[in-house]
Design a protein around this nucleic acid. Structure first.
Lengths: 94, 94, 94, 94
DNA sequence: CCGAAACGGTCATAAC
DNA sequence: GTTATGACCGTTTCGG
């Protein structure tokens, strides 16, 4: 079902990559790993903030609910915007 | 944005929150939302990088596999390092 | 790291299952597959309904938007309920 | 793509929707929501079955693997069947 | 066909 | 520790 060049096996047939391609690939890997590292750090900082709030006596469950509610409000507004666009498009305004 | 009687404020017994507490709470919400915004932006940048790689003809599935394997290798190496430290400590080398 | 009984290898060591366990397992598999079959059938029926609407000249994009909006409204109401419960609990009403 | 005056497009320009179209639209929404409700219920029942299996000591990860493998086998058999039919037809046996 | 968006599954984390 | 909740990833599907 799979042959040697199967994309799920990135090790296969490395000779098919030119030097330039290999260099480009290395750069992509580096960029991705940098971004992922930063994302992981942000996740850790978020945990710290919640921990700090908890240590000061705030109810993290309620705090998370506030964050969730505000995010959902933003989503609702975006959804309303989409519906408006859809409607305008339907009546030929776009 | 929220006052003490605001029913949308789920934090316990609003009247029990001092002005200082309310201000602190607002700061926590702001910090959390800032961090989450940055995290979302990083996620979008990651999508863009993968998109750029794809547009240059790279197989993103393979690329993701590479990233995954390298992360796992890093974990494995960290784990091996921990085991080594543990053993060294056990034999009094640390 | 993995031994023969490792849970990630469900084929390993079948002799570890008693007859009763094996029978119970077969029943679970049967129940799950029945439910998944029904779920797949519902998905197909949904596709048919959208197709029928489209064939009658309805804009499926708008139709999907309506469905999504109504679902989100329901979610919003559920979320508001949760916030109310959280608030009531906070002020000691529960 | 859509002409605002196109009477055959029930979505465009809501005022252009006849009573019959509106009623039809309501029926589509109702049918879709019913099907989605049933689909959600099946998903919940599946969760319950896995939970019950887990409570009886079965490894749900292994159980899921069994389900996945059996589904794949079914797909493979169906595919083989299709190939066989194709070949039989090609040699005039059907 | 491609790109985007919905879906389901899996995993990590948090509440109980 | 166990269930419940949410994030993430991969897959599929739909519209262009």
């Amino acid at each position: 079902m799979y042959d040697a060049d199967d994309a799920t096996n990135p090790v296969a047939a490395p000779q098919a990559l030119t030097s330039a391609s290999k260099e480009k690939l290395r750069q992509f890997v580096a960029r991705i790993e940098t971004l992922e590292t930063e994302k992981t750090e942000l996740a850790e900082q978020l945990k710290e903030v919640y921990g700090e709030a908890k240590s000061l006596g705030f109810d993290t469950k309620a705090l998370r609910a506030v964050i969730r509610l505000r995010k959902q409000d933003a989503n609702d507004r975006a959804e309303a915007e989409m519906m408006l666009d859809l409607y305008l498009e339907a009546v030929g305004e776009i």
